[in-house]
Amino acid sequence: MKTIVQSISFLILFGVSQIHANLYFNTKDLTLLVNETAKLTLYFIEDAPEDALLTLSTNHPDILTTNASGLIVKNSSNYQKWAIELFAHNAGHDELTVESFSKNINTNDAFVRVTVQHSKEFALISVIVGWIYFTAWSISFYPQIYENWTRKSVVGLNFDFISLNLIGFILYSMFNIGLWIPEVDNEYLERNPRGHNPVQLNDIFFSVHAVFATLVTVIQCFCYERGSQQVSYTAKLIMFFYSIVIIGLSIVIYLQKITWLDFLYYCSYIKLSITLIKYIPQAIMNYKRQSTIGWSIGNIFLDFTGGTLSIMQMIINAYNYNDWASIFGDPTKFGLGLLSVFFDILFFLQHYVFYRGNTYQEFNNPADLQVDNDSMSTEQEQTIENINEIRFNNY
């Protein structure tokens, strides 16, 4: 009777989601310091038709070891547990797993993901840095919106950049929201049975908020003065190509040749490609105009802050968890972060160095430009010509 009560209590404690498993640890994730020891409990809650041998192992013995390499499941009891000790030796990521030679024992959930770190302080700094750059990136859209509103003009803001940015964030939102759909989440866990869903709630918030803020900017482009600016033929061609790719992927999904998870990953790849090119039109436009008027430097400050802190967090984590492969083994995220910072530095140079003294004034009425030509110097005439060109030409 006591054994039955213990089994029922244990099931209630660990939830209905784990009833299908008959062998598992009291935790799935554990964080340790180097040279720290931790105690775990391994549970078995079903009848064993015969004695069975369990083997415990880690992927990297130089990072993590355990005090038990083998355990015996007795067939005389339907509730058994063992105390396991873990010893952390070096920083890194490892996994403690259990295997059984008996087909009657399910070991799928018998694992613990272990992170060994050098310092709790570095982990805290990483979290703080993460929230700072998340905040910086989240509010980086508003200096441009504010500048458009105060000027009642979007002259100087490149429409190719806005269009590509909107498509990129829509695809990013699709990826983040999609991975939280139960069916897609199950697909991910089937492929990565001992992994975490990579999308967090703040990822969804950031991407959806980015779509909203970019849409506000798009609306401003229709409402405020824009001169003869429009989306370029090149940008239209790029967006058309992306549209054809997405339509093609949708057809392939309908034919059940790929899964929704694959589709979302392809969307994320398109988003990455957009991140690679989206700043180029604005940089070229600033160069042609020899001015950054209309392109908010506040946006660049916040984007630069977010980019540098993101890279800093990656370096802190790489050191703290001895996981340099996260940077150099998969350079996509690190490279994109560096690329964004590179463009931010270029925009700083354009704003404060290359075109620092290049300003212009906008006139609502061309008649405001009429002056006595005879009284103008050659330099003044050139200034008026530049004003006319900036005011009425396509940038």
Rank of each mutant, 00 (worst) to 15 (best):
Y266N: 10
E389A: 08
N202K: 10
F342M: 13
Q370G: 00
S273E: 00
I345R: 01
Y269C: 11
I244L: 14
N35L: 07
R191A: 13
F205N: 03
K28M: 04
I293T: 14
Y266E: 09
S273H: 01
Q380T: 06
S377V: 05
L338Q: 07
T65R: 01
V34I: 14
L336C: 13
Y79V: 02
F347M: 12
I204K: 10
V154K: 03
L53D: 14
L96V: 01
V154T: 15
W260R: 04
L369C: 08
V371S: 12
N388V: 09
T359E: 12
F25P: 05
Y395A: 14
A367T: 13
A88M: 10
F392D: 10
V245Q: 10
V114R: 03
N320P: 11
T3R: 10
F101K: 13
I387L: 14
V341W: 02
L255Q: 15
L64E: 08
I8Q: 14
G15M: 09
T107S: 07
K288D: 13
S17W: 06
L71A: 08
S173K: 01
L30E: 07
A68K: 15
K2A: 09
N393R: 14
N386Q: 13
K39V: 11
A110R: 00
K81E: 12
V116A: 05
D94M: 03
R226I: 00
N158Y: 05
F175P: 02
I128S: 07
D372K: 13
V112K: 02
A83Q: 13
I170Y: 07
T259D: 04
S126L: 09
N286G: 11
E36P: 09
D323M: 03
S76H: 06
A91R: 05
C267F: 04
S310P: 05
S138R: 02
I345A: 11
P331Y: 06
G307S: 15
A110E: 05
W137L: 12
E121L: 14
A136F: 14
S163H: 06
Y266S: 10
D303K: 00
I167K: 00
M1K: 07
N286H: 08
Q80R: 03
Q380V: 02
E379G: 00
K152H: 03
N358M: 03
V216E: 04
E121P: 01
S232M: 02
I345D: 03
Y254H: 13
I387P: 04
E183F: 11
A367K: 13
H118L: 14
L255N: 12
E389P: 01
I300R: 06
G15Q: 07
D62L: 09
F10Y: 11
W149A: 00
S17I: 09
S77E: 06
R289I: 09
Y319M: 11
F87R: 09
G195S: 11
N373P: 04
N78K: 01
N158C: 11
H118Q: 15
I251Y: 15
N317E: 13
N158D: 15
M1P: 03
R226W: 01
S76R: 05
L166G: 01
S268I: 05
M376D: 00
Q282K: 08
I170V: 15
N106D: 15
T107A: 04
